[in-house]
């Protein structure tokens, strides 16, 4: 057995995670993009996307996400989400007011591409929440690793 297999959980968890993690991720994306049509939206979708990454880390050990993300990139993504949300709100000042819905103000019920800036704001929120939640998880496991090394 290579060292790769010693990390993370047992053999029965890993194939299950491999199968489901993509679906969880896609479901998160779906919730984000349909935020203006169905219950859910940026926050719920962002949490689900973050959970898919947390699942990976739990099943395969803490180093998997380090291969996908550079260190500290979560805070950058989070800040970018915040800036995007704020920029959309401030752009509204140009047309009428803070948070003014300047694209398609009326929209069509049930259509995916409608509702103006609301889907864009959902995407911004999901970036912020997803990155933020994942950063919290990473911080907590980093602290735990730090503790166990000290002993």
């Amino acid at each position: 057995m290579s060292k790769e297999h010693d990390r993370g959980m047992t053999i029965s968890v890993k194939p299950g995670t491999r199968l489901t993690v993509g679906l969880i991720f896609l479901f998160g994306i779906y919730i984000i993009l349909h935020g203006h049509l169905t219950p859910g939206g940026g926050f719920a979708g962002g949490v689900i996307v973050a959970l898919s990454f947390i699942n990976l880390d739990l099943a395969f050990g803490g180093e998997v996400s380090a291969r996908i993300f550079a260190k500290g990139s979560t805070s950058v993504v989070e800040a970018f989400g915040g800036i995007m949300f704020l920029a959309l709100a401030l752009l509204g000042l140009q047309w009428g007011g803070f948070f003014d819905n300047f694209l398609h103000p009326d929209g069509e019920p049930g259509m995916l591409i409608s509702a103006g800036i609301i889907p864009l704001e959902n995407i911004a929120i999901s970036l912020k929440v997803g990155a933020g939640l994942f950063a919290i998880f990473l911080t907590l496991i980093a602290l735990q690793k730090f503790e166990s090394e000290k002993k």
């Binding site: 805070s75 950058v76 800040a79 970018f80 915040g82 800036i83 704020l86 803070f98």
Partner: peptide, 18 residues
């Protein structure tokens, strides 16, 4: 200009991180 009282510090906070 009223919303800027909140928006400016928020933008500053995010840009500082970025």
């Amino acid at each position: 200009t009223i919303p800027l009282f909140v928006a400016l510090p928020l933008a500053g906070a995010f840009l500082t991180v970025l």
